[in-house]
Nucleic acid binder design. Structure first.
Length: 416
RNA sequence: GCGAAGUUGGUGAAGUGGUUAACACGCCGGAUUGUGGCUCCGGUAUGCGUGGGUUCGAUUCCCACACUUCGCCCCA
């Protein structure tokens, strides 16, 4: 038997309906914020991610799906959404007219070669959005607001936005040096992973789970203390705006994010004070890094699958229609034609209609009525049909009524 | 890449080194039924993840691998 690949999954049935529900909420919310939907290719030149996400990151070094196509091109299945969108932005020269910011959102499959576990797969979905062209703190606030409200509208109330600022390049570099100076003499007291991180990505030592409670981490220099005046002002202004918008946030001075391209504000949306459901931040250097002009950007990505999981764990009610409007039964095969015709007629008039296609006995057809959870059913029989009549029965109240076949749509319109 | 647990039918599962692998749900057929939903009767596994090994004999013991689930790294 050929089975699905590790870390992939089929989406169908109730799961598919839940996702359709979530998608609808997210789509309509993006519309309110005037973000346009974008789809970029699943695979891109490998270099896009190496340069965009960061050559040194684990994501690029050991988690990408890389392959050569038949033309010897080095390609990579996208491990995240931002790089592709930035490529699109540059390639189509959208920077040519920056009289308004360019705002897009995506809802797409991503691929990372990882060990699957709860809320994490090799093929997974991210919903995310990017805003290009504004370096105003207003755009930071808008992005956070959009992300925050998405979770709220999905029924996740117990969320908080954790924010921090890495500052501009100058601040960030000053901080990095200070952190290294501080950590180097003390590194042997930290865990093995942290010792490795010192070289690769020292900022991440700050949110190490093992050493979280150690004094070394607690007393480490904070990014905030190394912000220059403009960066600091900007961070304060953002907090004012979030207060104004009544967004539940807290400053987390140890929040750094995994990808190289972030600067200034970074944030995560956290559920129940522990479980991160999405994250984002500003990436003012990224467009330039990828070959475009110096255009600022800010964005966010939601871990779609884990958000759905969280909704289930939080007991969020997701409305799912698991019933049909009407089931057509027939006593003998002579009424089949009528069933075929009538089913089409009802469907075209907007009703969810089913009939038997398995040559079932009448008894078995009745079972189908209940399996499909039909609101109404009709047993077609030649006797009634002779007079162009049909007996429709409400499957809940069990009341039945004889209706002219031509009045059936009107009857259903009135009763449903 | 590292660690833990698991892998029996459409589903939930019980079970044993040796003739026909419990039980339940579901599904199919039949009886009864005024056109069903209750009840009753009958049927329903390419044989126990894959490949090796031990054995007279393995689904049951051993090894490897795969997959699933959970955790670490990483990410979100």
């Amino acid at each position: 038997m050929i089975t699905k690949q590790k870390g992939t999954y089929d989406i169908y049935g109730e799961e598919a309906k839940k996702r359709a529900y979530v998608d609808e909420i997210l789509d309509s919310l993006c519309e309110k914020y005037n973000y346009g939907y974008i789809e970029t290719p699943v695979f891109e030149a490998s270099e896009l991610f190496h340069r965009g996400v960061g050559e040194a990151t684990d994501m690029v070094q050991k988690e990408t799906y890389d392959f050569k196509d038949r033309g010897d091109r080095m390609l990579t299945l996208r491990p995240e959404g931002t790089a592709g969108v930035v490529r699109w932005f540059i390639e189509n020269k959208l920077y040519g007219n920056m009289s308004e910011p360019v705002k897009v959102y995506y809802n797409a499959k991503m691929y990372r070669y990882e060990r699957p576990q709860s809320g994490r797969n090799r093929e997974f979905t991210q919903w995310g959005f990017e805003c290009f062209g504004s370096d105003d703190v207003m755009s930071d606030a808008e992005v956070i607001s959009l992300a925050y409200n998405a979770y709220r509208l999905l029924g996740l109330d117990n969320i908080v936005v954790r924010i921090n600022s890495l500052g501009d390049d100058e601040s960030r570099n000053r901080y990095r040096d200070a952190l290294l100076d501080y950590l180097k003499p003390r590194i042997n007291d930290l865990c093995e992973d942290c010792q490795k991180r010192l070289e690769k990505n020292p900022l991440r030592i700050l949110d190490c789970k093992v050493d979280a409670d150690s004094d070394i981490i607690k007393n480490a220099p904070k990014t905030i203390d190394y912000l220059n005046d403009t960066s600091k002002e900007r961070f304060d202004k953002l907090k004012d705006l979030l207060d104004l918008m009544d967004i539940n946030y807290e400053v987390d001075v140890n929040l750094v994010r995994g990808l190289d391209y972030y600067n200034h504000i970074v944030f995560e949306i956290v559920l129940n004070d522990s479980y991160a459901l999405g994250g984002g931040g500003r990436y003012n250097g990224l467009v330039e890094t990828l070959g475009g002009p110096n255009i600022p950007g800010v964005g966010f990505a939601m871990g779609y699958d884990r958000t759905l999981l969280a909704m289930e764990e939080e007991g969020v009610h997701i409305p799912i229609n698991d019933s049909i409007d009407i089931y057509l039964l027939y006593v003998s095969s002579s009424e089949k034609d009528t069933a075929a015709y009538l089913a089409q007629d009802l469907r075209l008039n907007g009703f969810v209609c089913e009939t038997d296609m398995m040559s079932k006995s009448l008894k078995a057809q009745f079972k189908s009525v209940d399996r499909y959870n039909a609101k109404y059913f009709i047993v077609l029989n030649d006797e009634d049909l002779k007079d162009n009549m049909v007996t429709i029965k409400d499957n809940k109240t069990k009341e039945e009524e004889k209706v002219n076949i031509n009045d059936l749509v009107d009857y259903l319109d009135m009763h449903m």
